[in-house]
């Protein structure tokens, strides 16, 4: 691990200033992804600003009838919250489908959104990776791409966003709240939070340097039945090959987003409208323009079958 200095921030703006004002400085909350990457020197921060003491550990009801989830609420606490289990079950289900009990106890809400891709070439510092080392090329393109993206990818990078929680947040149309070094706050719809790689795959999100996530806000509950169907190589503790987050209403309408397929949680609103027509119609529309490789072309029929399973369950 590269050497770094460490400080514990006492207020959000000071934390943002500490990161914005110093080259190579990074926030750390749970640290479960960042430390993993620091050990193999994929991440090499020169300074860590520990934000665990900030007052972002509560889940509160909003005046609009939704929930405001503090950035530091652990994945375990968020999945276990009675209001989330009752009104936003897709979110509890998605979180519980990810990682292990130990990791969920430490991982934060904001950190989960900021976790980096699990593309094997990103992890392997002997290989070219535009995300790890901009301009070095992409060894995944033409390499072994079974786990990698089928849509929204670019000529620079075909990695996926690996998380589950964010896929549920996309179905719920959550909003990411931030503060920057000048104290200015902004609200970023989850749809706009993660970037498509384009020619700058090193930048995962639209956050500016030093911009700190303070909360994630959920709008009023959608009702309907909530599903998170995750298909993976093991029954537990594995990343998604494909996942389907869905909220289906009694009349068969609803919303659906997919994980494990793209640089961001993948949702196409025009495809949502086709839910009453069945899984094939939705997938055809949602994955229009997909560019799978021969290793990961299976993800399209897999997504169709996973969604068909969800729709069947919703009808029973």
């Amino acid at each position: 691990m590269k050497a770094f200095t460490y400080e514990r921030a006492k207020d959000p703006v000071a934390a943002a200033q500490a990161v914005a004002g110093r080259r190579g400085a990074r926030f750390i909350a749970g640290g479960t992804n960042l430390l993993d990457l620091m050990k193999i020197e994929v991440e090499t921060p020169a300074h860590l600003v520990d934000v665990q003491d900030l007052d972002f550990d509560k889940i509160e009801e909003t005046p609009e009838g939704g929930l405001r989830i503090g950035a530091l609420v652990s994945n375990t606490d968020l999945a276990a919250d009675g209001r989330v289990r009752r009104d936003y079950a897709v979110l509890s289900r998605a979180i519980l489908a990810g990682a292990s009990g130990q990791l969920r106890n430490k991982a934060s809400t904001a950190g989960n959104l900021l976790q980096r891709t699990r593309c094997p070439y990103f992890y392997d510092t002997n290989m070219a990776c535009n995300k790890r080392q901009p301009g070095s090329g992409c060894a995944a393109i033409g390499g072994y791409s079974r786990q990698l993206g089928v849509i929204g990818v670019s000529k620079s990078c075909i990695a996926t966003f690996p998380g589950d929680m964010a896929v549920a947040l996309r179905v719920l149309d959550a909003v990411v709240e931030t503060v920057d070094a000048s104290g200015k706050t902004r609200s970023i719809p989850i749809a706009d939070f993660h970037r498509l790689w384009g020619d700058r795959p090193e930048q995962d999100t639209v956050l500016a340097p030093g911009e700190l996530i303070t909360a994630v806000t959920l709008p009023r509950p959608l009702g309907g039945r909530h599903f998170y169907e995750k298909v993976r190589d093991r029954a537990s503790y594995a990343f998604a090959l494909v996942s389907v987050a869905a909220v289906i209403q009694p009349d068969g309408t609803g919303r659906v987003a997919f994980g494990g397929v793209a640089p961001k949680p993948w949702r196409v609103e025009a495809a949502d409208a086709l839910l009453p027509q069945g899984a094939e119609a939705v997938i055809r529309r949602a994955f229009e323009g997909a560019t799978p490789t021969k290793d990961n072309a299976f993800k399209l029929p897999l997504a169709t079958r996973a969604l068909a399973f969800v729709i069947t369950q919703a009808r029973t």
Binding site: Y6, T32, L35, D50, T76, L103, N105, K106
Partner: peptide, 18 residues
Amino acid sequence: TVLVGGKRINSCLSLAMM
């Protein structure tokens, strides 16, 4: 795995300073 404040975590993915 150890318990911190009664909750299990991976002690390898946490800095002592934290």
